[in-house]
């Protein structure tokens, strides 16, 4: 009788705890462990590049400011999402993302493919006061980013930590992290050429915040926003058709 067994189990604290651990472990093991091996989640995108130090710094600002609370970076496989935001997101596109920033709420629009959609100038104006460019917006103003100098001295350590976790940063990239961050936001400087050498010709080198005298957090965040969805073009090649959102009347 199962109840008799349970009466026994209730008499042993250790036995009860072990039973809880056993019951609670199954689901996680079945759902998480296979994700590290099956092809679907660890597909290859040979053309994919890593974030430059400036973009990574921008990503860390995005993380720090909690942007994920209102912006997703995950276009679902639904027709209306693909028409609104672009091709649906693939697993490979966030393979270097720690943490992933798929988000869970869209108080603002999805940002998975916002890169290149607006000019640098628009982004800066929008971040300084969103209501200057979108009067109906309820996004906070991030004017302080333009006032805050970007901390670059430890960017090498950031890249090294990512390298230790398996992100393919070369030792050269780690050694030149601070220089590359500077170079990417100062197109006329000597450091600029190193960025294209190490991260590819298509990497955007630009005075992101429009001020070519100092490197600010605004530079970094805009550099990051401009690369969203553009690390690989895998999502634009042979993917499956999207789904029509189900309709209650069907």
């Amino acid at each position: 009788m199962p109840e008799l067994f349970h009466r026994k189990l209730e008499r042993s604290a250790i036995g009860f705890v072990l039973a809880i651990i056993a019951a609670a472990s199954v689901g996680g093991i079945v759902e998480i462990a296979p994700l590290f091996t099956i092809d679907e989640t660890v597909e290859e995108a040979p053309d994919m590049r890593v974030y430059t130090p400036l973009e990574l710094a921008g990503r860390n600002i995005y993380v720090r400011e909690g942007c994920y609370a209102c912006h997703s970076q995950m276009i679902r496989t639904l027709r209306d999402e693909v028409e609104r935001y672009g091709p649906y997101s693939l697993a490979v596109e966030s393979q270097y993302d720690r943490p992933m920033l798929w988000g869970s709420k869209r108080t603002g629009p999805d940002l998975a493919r916002v890169g290149g959609k607006y000019s640098d100038f628009w982004h800066v104006a929008h971040l300084i006061n969103p209501r200057d460019v979108v009067p109906e917006s309820n996004m906070p103003a991030y004017a302080f980013l333009a006032r805050t100098e970007l901390r670059t001295s430890d960017l090498g350590q950031h890249l090294a930590a990512q390298q230790a976790l398996g992100v393919p940063y070369t030792d050269e990239m780690v050694a030149n992290a601070a220089r590359d961050a500077y170079g990417q936001a100062f197109p006329d400087s000597e450091a600029a050429s190193g960025v294209s050498e190490r991260y590819g010709e298509t990497t955007q080198v630009s005075a992101f915040d429009g001020v070519a005298t100092r490197l600010t957090e605004m530079d970094a965040l805009v550099a990051y926003l401009q690369v969203l969805g553009r690390l690989t073009d895998a999502a634009f090649r042979d993917t499956a058709a999207t789904e029509q959102a189900p309709d209650a009347e069907d």
Binding site: G27, G28, E31, I32, L35, F36, T41, A91, V92, E93, S94, Q95, Y96, D97, R98, P99, M100, W102, A161, Q162, L165, G166, V167
Partner: peptide, 16 residues
């Protein structure tokens, strides 16, 4: 810090 879980694995672990 940087989480040891990347991308899709991180998403699954996070929502688990």
């Amino acid at each position: 810090s940087y989480t040891i879980w990347p991308g899709v694995q991180d998403a699954m672990v996070q929502w688990w």
